[in-house]
Computed example of a mutant assay.
Amino acid sequence: MKDIIFDDFQNNVDASLIRHRSLLDIMTKLQESESRINRAIAKSVTNCGCISIEAKKQKLPSKDSDLSIENLSQCLETHIKGKLCENCRDIIESEIGTNLFYLTSLCNTLGLNLYDILLKEYDKINTLGKYNLR
C-alpha cells in the first residue's frame, strides 16, 4: 500500500511540474528549497524565539567509560532548547514539503523511483544499524 502512495505522489509531482522541467532548473529549485528550510529554522530562533540554539562542543565519554556505540546517541545533544510553535512548525513543514516536491522532480527527471531509493536506504540503515554512523 505504501508503495502506491509513493508512486502516486511521484506521478502527481510529474504531472504538476510545468515550468521547471529542465534538470538545471530542478537542481537549483531543490537547492533553493533547502535554503528556505534553513531560513525558516533560523527565523524560529531569531524572529519567533520558540526555539533557541545552545551549541557547544559535544562531550564524549572518556576512553575508560563502558559506553557502547548503541548508547552513544544518549550522550550527544541536538543543541535545540524549546519546542517549535505551531506557526513555525507549519512553515517548516511547508518548506520541507516543497523540498520533497523538487527532490521527487529530480528523481522523475533522472528516471529514478523515490520508493525504491527509500527502500534501499531503509535496508542499509537496518543492516548497518548504529554502525552506519551518520
Rank of each mutant, 00 (worst) to 15 (best):
S52Q: 06
D25T: 01
Y115W: 04
L60A: 09
L67V: 13
L72C: 03
L118F: 15
I91W: 02
L103K: 15
T78L: 06
L128R: 15
I117S: 10
D116W: 02
E86M: 03
T98I: 13
A15W: 04
I41N: 09
D64N: 07
C50M: 02
N132G: 02
I5G: 02
S68Y: 09
I26L: 08
L23A: 08
D3M: 04
D3C: 01
L106C: 13
R36D: 15
L112K: 12
I92D: 05
Q10L: 06
S33E: 14
I117Y: 10
G111I: 02
L60I: 09
C88D: 02
N71P: 01
K83V: 08
N87S: 04
L114R: 08
S73V: 04
E86V: 01
L106S: 06
Q10Y: 08
T109C: 15
C50A: 02
D66M: 05
L84V: 00
L133M: 13
N38H: 13
T46N: 05
S52M: 02
I96N: 13
I69P: 00
R21T: 07
S22L: 07
L128N: 14
Q58T: 06
G111S: 06
S62F: 05
G49T: 00
K81F: 04
K57R: 15
N87Y: 03
K29W: 07
L84F: 00
L128C: 08
S35W: 12
P61E: 05
S62W: 06
S68C: 05
L72R: 11
I5F: 13
S52T: 10
I4A: 10
T104L: 08
E93W: 06
E121V: 12
M27Q: 14
I37K: 13
I80A: 06
V13D: 09
E86F: 03
Q74H: 13
L118Y: 15
R89W: 04
C85L: 00
A55M: 10
S52L: 04
R19V: 04
P61Y: 08
I53R: 03
I80N: 07
A55K: 10
D25N: 10
L103E: 14
L23R: 13
N99D: 08
S62R: 07
D66W: 07
T109R: 15
E70W: 06
N126L: 12
I125N: 10
C85V: 01
H20E: 09
E32F: 14
E77K: 07
D123G: 00
D90W: 01
G129C: 10
K29V: 00
T98W: 06
L118R: 13
L76R: 12
D90N: 03
A15K: 15
E121W: 11
R36A: 13
K124W: 05
M1V: 03
Y115C: 01
L119Q: 12
K63T: 03
S35D: 09
L67M: 11
I117P: 03
N108K: 11
S73K: 12
Y122V: 00
L118G: 01
N126Q: 12
S68E: 13
S65R: 01
M1P: 02
G97W: 09
Y102K: 12
L72W: 06
E32M: 09
K81S: 11
N12W: 07
E121P: 00
L76G: 03
T127E: 14
G97R: 13
C48W: 07
E32Y: 14
R89M: 07
D25F: 08
N11Q: 14
F101Y: 14
G97I: 02
S16D: 09
L60H: 11
N71C: 04
I117D: 11
